[in-house]
Amino acid sequence: MSEDLLVRHCSPTLAGIKTGNLFSCPCASRTDLTKELSQLNKKLVPKGIRVLPLRVRRGRALIYVYRPHALECDLADQRARVLLLKYGYTPENPYCCVVHLIRRLCAEEEFPHEIGLFLSYPPEDVLGFIQNRACNHKCVGCWKVYGDETAAKHRFEQYDACSKIYSLHWQQGKSIERLTVAG
């Protein structure tokens, strides 16, 4: 797994403006993936970021890049807590929540839609997605919006601008460590 994938798919998290990002990448060997993620974590953990495989299936790995402190803040939201409790999470322990998410991803056929709470999606939009079965949304960007459309569009623009700037800096030779904001 290349650092290029991290920059391409996770710039807002690297920049500290988003709790987490997900992306899928080829995975020919779990052993190699573990080594690559260990090397990445050595670079990023001092900056407040963790990189984990959430699921490895059919030659692909689903990678979660996140800021544990930001996740703790996100999961402390009362609306997020209520939703997480409904699906068997213990919201007061973000680490346990990530472990439970991994279990749900590996055990369930349907994708656990509460995953949006781990990616800085507003709780009202995650709940709206679940209740409306992905229909009747106000707009679509990084996620389907059911709540504050104006705020969501502003976030989408921020994430897009960040990704473009990070991509440019990466192409100009900035290292992943230099691109990652400590937090």
Results as ranks from 00 to 15, higher is better:
His113Asn: 09
Arg79Gln: 04
Thr180Asp: 09
Thr31Phe: 06
Trp170Lys: 05
Arg79Leu: 06
Lys86Val: 15
Leu6Ala: 02
Ala76Phe: 03
Lys35Pro: 12
Tyr87Ile: 14
Asp77Asn: 13
Gly147Glu: 10
Leu101Gly: 11
Ala28Trp: 00
Arg133Ile: 07
Glu36His: 09
Tyr146Gln: 07
Lys43Glu: 02
Lys43Ala: 08
Leu179Ile: 06
Lys153Arg: 13
Leu54Trp: 06
Pro123Cys: 09
Val7Ile: 14
Ile102Gly: 13
Glu124Asp: 13
Lys138Ser: 00
Val181Gly: 09
Pro26Trp: 01
Pro112Asn: 03
His137Cys: 07
His100Val: 08
Tyr64His: 11
Leu14Asp: 09
Arg55Ile: 15
His69Tyr: 11
Ala70Leu: 13
Arg55Lys: 15
Arg58Asp: 14
Asp4Ile: 01
Ser175Thr: 08
Ala80Leu: 06
Tyr146Arg: 04
Lys144His: 02
Gln172Ser: 04
Glu114Ile: 06
Ala161Cys: 15
Pro12Gly: 01
Phe129Tyr: 13
Gln158Ala: 04
Ala80Lys: 03
Cys96Asp: 07
Val51Ala: 01
Asn93Phe: 13
Cys106Thr: 11
Ala107Lys: 15
Asp4Gln: 08
Arg8Cys: 13
Ala15Phe: 14
Leu85Asp: 05
Leu85Thr: 14
Arg79Ser: 10
Ile63Glu: 05
Arg178Asp: 05
Arg60Glu: 12
Cys142Met: 06
Arg30Trp: 07
Tyr89Val: 01
Ala80Val: 06
Gly59Asp: 07
Arg57Asp: 01
Tyr146Lys: 05
Asn93Ala: 12
Ala134Met: 04
Lys43Pro: 00
His69Asp: 14
